[in-house]
């Protein structure tokens, strides 16, 4: 922290999250500091000392367990086994597997995303018929994989859920489109392009969906501010709220 006031520094120290164990790989030690943009000692709310540490990348070992927990082999292991037998390139395609809070996440390399999704949909022992769309997440500190796309798949046949996560660097924001496997992702991928700027290669018509067609920038990214954007409406420009005329 940049605080020079000893009293506040002590207060901030008391407010910090517990230090993680030394052996834990700490890739980016601090993910976020302060709240509501408070950076200086002028802040009296106590938010200024808030330090949020980045958690190391998780990776689970077998057994993955099931929705009830990872004590013994369960539904998640069945999914992983079936996918492994269906995909010869499994080791290549799946970067790591995370079983956390009763949910299974497969981190898939983008080159293999379509083949993984196709296997998950078509194999009788997998049968993830329904995709619940794409959710983008922006991790500016995750160098080389800033943009993540998260897919939640549902198997009605086996009554299971799993999550696929693919990532791409900010410098090359391309992911393969899953529309040919799950047509429902049409709008979801447009939304993720609109909000995060991830280009889904192979999408039939990747255009903005929520923001106006001529909008500049991708609003859900972490480097995009909340508010502060003048709005143009029929030729008239309306300034952002903090720049409007004040009546006080």
């Amino acid at each position: 922290m940049s605080s020079h006031h000893p009293e506040q520094a002590a207060e901030q120290a008391a407010d910090r999250l517990p230090e993680p164990a030394e052996d834990a790989p700490q890739e980016q030690p601090v993910a976020r500091m302060g709240m509501f943009g408070a950076r200086t000692t002028g802040d009296t709310s106590g938010y200024g000392g808030l330090v949020v540490r980045r958690r190391p990348k998780l990776s689970s070992e077998r057994p993955y367990g099931g929705p009830e927990g990872a004590a013994e082999a369960g539904a998640f292991d069945a999914v992983a086994d079936a996918l492994e037998s269906a995909l010869p390139e499994f080791g290549d395609a799946v970067e790591r597997v995370v079983a956390d809070r009763g949910e299974l996440t497969l981190h898939v390399r983008r080159e293999h995303l379509v083949s993984v999704a196709r296997a998950l949909r078509d194999r009788p022992e997998l049968r993830f018929e329904l995709c619940s769309g794409v959710s983008g997440v922006h991790y500016p500190d995750d160098a080389g994989a800033e943009l993540h796309a998260v897919y939640h798949l549902l198997s009605i046949t086996h009554n299971r859920r799993i999550r696929l996560e693919a990532s791409c660097p900010d410098a090359d924001p391309h992911l393969p489109s899953l529309v040919e496997v799950y047509p429902t992702n049409d709008w979801h991928e447009r939304e993720t392009w609109d909000f995060f700027g991830i280009v889904f290669d192979g999408h039939p018509a990747l255009t903005r969906i929520e923001m106006p067609d001529d909008w500049v920038g991708h609003p859900q990214r972490k480097d995009y501010p909340l508010g502060g954007i003048p709005v143009e409406y029929r030729g008239a420009e309306i300034p952002p709220p903090d720049e409007r005329r004040s009546y006080v």
Binding site: A31, L50, V52, R55, S135, V150
Partner: peptide, 19 residues
């Protein structure tokens, strides 16, 4: 998605109307 803080890092709703 949480990064361990007091605010959501990301919340996405899969709204059925949208789909």
């Amino acid at each position: 998605v949480s990064d361990g803080g007091t605010r959501p890092y990301r919340v996405h709703f899969r709204d059925p109307s949208f789909t």
